[in-house]
Design a binder for these strands. Structure first.
Lengths: 362, 362
DNA sequence: CTGTTAGCGCTTTCAC
DNA sequence: GTGAAAGCGCTAACAG
């Protein structure tokens, strides 16, 4: 069964310099161990009970000798499942994404999946391209933090296609599980904090929000809450759009913002800026610092949803999202569906946590 | 050959609601188009010249009708190459990693690869596990930003194994291409900047550096440069280790650092802290702010290698790495080796760029 | 307990 | 031009 000199045909090819040593296959191992592929397969899949101690030892030795590694591609092909999950992130540059990612990784680790991380980098073409790719690689499920732009490519997911769960934002026409922040509650938390600290001039600053559900919800809740709470006081609430994609637009928008601040100042009051997320908050802080210097906090208050690492350093009051949990839960949702659960689409909305810092002095 | 009722065996198992409609295979398409699998394959691979216009049209229609997507796993298995590259990152929490990642993605896009992103999260087990995984998925090459801890699992890469290129740091005993910052030049740039601005008390603050080549090189260059440059002046240079992994150790280390600052102050001078990277810089800035308040810059100068997004906001002088280029070049190196190039291992060291801000007033 | 036999979905000779 | 057949590396019935 085993040809005399078998040990060396391996040495011969991998020895030299940069030659490609063609990895050992299951057949090689079988031959080396003097048995059939089936037994090797059994060994690999932990069906040890069905192997005589002797055979088992020989297999172990052969694997070791050949430095054998089962080919996952082949396995997946045969089994029809590859334990791959797709994670499509709109923008890894946003710490939020990285944190969600960590939660996803933890859950994948726990549940035995391998996440395929894809980064759309805010480009719709990339989003489309990766979605394609994930499909052709036959991932068993996808976690999508979409750009928000209407994207027909996404449709096939929920319907006929792969199980999917949305993170942070919904996608028009896609009926899938969803997990993210309780946006309304978070916005309320922020507004109430500002109101309690005596601010009467509130400006909600947000990126274009028509297509991004989380932004839309935050903005709506801000308005509802700021107006509703007026009570005896004379509260002015406004929404201001800041499109970070184009520098020119940013400058103009920032200049317009200054008007609110100046108006409030004229009235002897301090304006409170409510940033819808970290990227906006950074841009705002940068602007305020450039305009008013290191003491900008005396000219305008700032609060933001999201809690990036620099918030502490800059002393900015924030509403932190339980990002890790969000990622973790997304995988759990997906897992259930992959395992065949048939239930109505669910939504998990986690509460945010207010972290008070120097930017909203009372 | 084909059993009469074939259309419904699909409906049978997945009928319910959100069940899986088993994706169409190449055979399905062939049948639908009334031809053989070979032609479909040819079509998929762009061998259009070998197809009659008629057949071609039928294939196009069939693919469309069945929403067919070729299975990459199967393709890869058959071809022996899957266009997958592994990217193993020590810590995605570090903006540096995300930026390198972006360069890698751009290059992959340009060269037709799909990056498998793996995040070790500073855990050696994770690093090992992902390395295993990448191997079993038969990626064609790996880009490794290693933890630095000696890791035998890495060995198989360069030798018999998969082509690899190291990013930012070397790995003991692994002879592979390497791309990163010109650490010596960067450290020199920083020291010279400080010296030119009149600082005579320099402290280089770095995480444990025995196992991380980039830290080692920066530290060595700092010492060489700071000492060498003394000239007529009386320059004091010291290296201080800050281990960010344990809070207790951080506190103690930070307290010790205060001594340097106090000493310099007693002499009527201001101490200059040189952070070896962004995480250290953040910790330092946080500490200084806690200790001296918003005006901390008057008590100690701070400069750092790396240029995170908050550096501008905090007004910290930095030495920026061309991160995108680093990632891009890594892929190019890998690509050449994958294509079969046999050359001595190379190293690309990119220069850093000094960005002067308020933290190092002259 | 162990091996033989079919394929998974695709590419690729090699004939027609 | 086009298709039939033989696998890529692995698993999963079936026999012994």
């Amino acid at each position: 069964m085993s040809r005399g000199s078998s040990a060396d045909d391996n040495a011969g090819r991998s020895a030299g310099e940069g030659a490609l040593p063609r990895r050992a296959t299951i057949s090689d191992v079988a031959r080396e161990a003097g048995t059939g592929k089936t037994s090797i397969s059994r060994y690999l899949n932990g069906e040890l009970s069905a192997l005589s101690p002797d055979l088992r030892a020989r297999i172990e030795a052969a694997i070791e000798r050949l430095d054998y590694r089962p080919n996952q591609m082949a396995r997946g092909l045969k089994r029809g499942r590859n334990r791959l999950l797709g994670l499509l992130l709109a923008d890894l540059t946003n710490p939020y994404s990285v944190e969600v990612l960590q939660g996803v990784e933890a859950a994948c680790h726990a549940l035995g999946y391998m996440p395929l991380i894809c980064h759309a980098a805010n480009e719709i073409d990339m989003e489309r391209r990766y979605l394609q790719l994930l499909t052709t690689y036959r991932v068993e499920g996808v976690i999508v933090n979409a750009l928000g732009v209407p994207e027909p490519m996404l449709k096939p997911l929920a319907s006929g296609g792969i199980p999917a769960v949305l993170v942070d934002r919904t996608v028009d026409g896609l009926d899938a599980d969803m997990v993210g922040l309780d946006n309304a509650a978070a916005a309320r938390l922020g507004v109430e904090h500002l109101l309690a600290h005596g601010y009467d001039d509130l400006v909600f600053v947000v990126q274009p929000f028509e297509h991004v559900s989380s932004r839309r919800e935050r903005e709506a809740a801000f308005r509802a809450c700021a107006h509703g709470k007026q009570g005896a006081r004379d509260v002015r609430a406004a929404t201001h759009v800041l499109d970070l994609r184009e520098d020119a637009s940013v400058d103009a928008s920032l200049a317009a913002l200054d008007v609110y601040i100046a108006d409030a100042a004229r009235r002897g009051a301090r304006c409170a800026l409510f940033a819808a997320n970290a990227p906006v908050a950074l841009r705002l802080a940068l602007h305020l610092k450039a305009r008013f210097g290191a003491q900008w906090q005396q000219h305008a208050a700032l609060i933001a949803i999201d809690d990036p690492e620099w918030a502490e350093l800059a002393g900015i009051t924030t509403i932190r999202q339980p990002t890790r949990e969000i990622g973790y839960r997304a995988v759990e949702f997906l897992h259930e569906r992959i395992e065949g659960a048939v239930l109505a689409t669910r939504a998990a909305a986690f509460p945010g946590e207010l972290i008070v810092r120097a930017s909203t002095p009372g």
